[in-house]
Nucleic acid binder design. Structure first.
Length: 212
DNA sequence: CACTAGATTTTCT
DNA sequence: GAAAATCTAGTGG
């Protein structure tokens, strides 16, 4: 789709918020369904930032050794045990934040990590926040997109099914043919599970070698 | 483009 | 005290 058409479509869908039921299903299914949806961030200044989700990973509970919830509830992962549709945000490697959406019914710990987006609205603002000049490096990684959208622990627990500082809307549905699947990135255990999903050949997917 | 060392600090054992 | 769902900047092809 042409860049101009995408931008117009983004503006048209700013208020088509995904309902809580969207997140109730088995997490890998939700992770796949989130491709093509739009992450929207309203800054304290009122500026609107938005981008299409192009890469996700599913994390579950006690059947998933890669998950923060594998060994039960802790202070950090409490949100994962709560109702679906809320933001689970944590600090990784001492300096970057990762954004997840909680999935599956309350009490069943699980979430989808949003690994990359394609910038659509507020791009110049994102460039200021990230201090990079290359468009491709703006939001092609979990730590990068949170920096570009001013997302940190202050937003942990936010309900993303309501209008507010952070939410997700329906932009489009990606056909199965255009979806790539692989093991998750950056984990030690759980590499046998194929729970990473991405839009094939999209330049904003993290790691160029893993884009097909 | 491919590969990698080093940064940095919360979280849990 | 060790590990961590990462990124940047450096080297070399």
């Amino acid at each position: 789709m042409l860049a101009n058409d995408l931008t117009r479509k983004a503006r048209e869908h700013l208020n088509s918020i995904l309902p809580r039921e969207f997140y109730m299903e088995y997490t890998p299914i939700v992770a796949k369904k989130l491709l093509g949806k739009m992450l929207v961030r309203i800054l304290p200044s009122g500026n609107i930032l938005a981008g299409m989700i192009v890469e996700t990973e599913a994390y579950r509970g006690k059947d998933d050794p890669a998950s923060h919830a594998y060994k039960g509830k802790t202070h950090r992962n409490t949100v994962m045990f709560g109702p679906p549709g809320h933001a689970y945000i944590y600090l990784i490697y001492g300096m970057y934040y990762c954004l997840n959406v909680v999935t599956e019914p309350e009490g069943c710990p699980a979430a989808v990590l949003i690994r990359a987006i394609q910038p659509l609205l507020g791009i110049s603002e994102m460039i200021k926040l990230r201090k990079v000049n290359k468009l491709r490096l703006l939001t092609n990684g979990p730590g990068r997109l949170t920096q570009a959208m001013m997302i940190d622990k202050a937003l942990n627990g936010v309900d993303m099914t309501r209008l507010g500082p952070l939410y997700i809307t329906d932009l489009m549905t990606i056909p199965d043919d255009n979806i790539g699947i692989s093991p998750r990135i950056g984990i030690k255990d759980g590499k046998d599970k194929l729970w990473r999903f991405f839009i094939k050949n999209n330049p904003f997917v993290s790691y160029s070698a893993q884009r097909k």
